[in-house]
């Protein structure tokens, strides 16, 4: 499961720049009102669609998602699978198997957390 911290402002940098006109200001208020519902929705979407990114995504997580998506896309497109099999001199089934196996940990173990 991907964690999605609550109350996060997301990636929008709107809060950093001071409001120049009142119109923009009201817009900001509106969007912050929307933010609460948007977040629960987002959380729901993250649970539903594995591989969706979020603001606190680490490089490792992003890369792992990319690789898993790529690997499953290769398996899902028969011409690509044939192409790799010909290049590597293996059977198509073997390439498919190795690709699926690699989805488990495509980019090595995760980096150590620097909590300490």
């Amino acid at each position: 499961m991907l964690a999605c911290p609550k109350g996060n402002d997301g990636s929008r940098p709107t809060n950093d720049s001071p409001p120049k006109a009142t119109k923009i200001n009201t817009l900001l208020v509106m969007s912050s009102e929307l933010r609460y519902t948007a977040n629960t929705q987002l959380e729901h979407l993250h649970a539903r669609y594995t591989g969706t990114g979020h603001a606190d995504l680490s490089k490792y997580e992003w890369l792992t998602h990319q690789h898993r998506d790529t690997l499953s896309s290769i398996v899902g497109h028969p011409p690509l699978l044939s192409y790799l099999a010909i290049a590597d001199g293996e059977s198509i089934a073997r390439v498919k198997f190795e690709m699926t196996e690699r989805m488990l940990q495509p980019c090595g173990p995760p980096p150590k957390k620097d909590d300490d």
Binding site: T50, D69, S72, S73, V75, G76, H77
Partner: peptide, 9 residues
């Protein structure tokens, strides 16, 4: 599309 979590494979 041939996606990771959309059935069809």
């Amino acid at each position: 599309g041939a996606r990771r979590i959309v059935p069809g494979q």
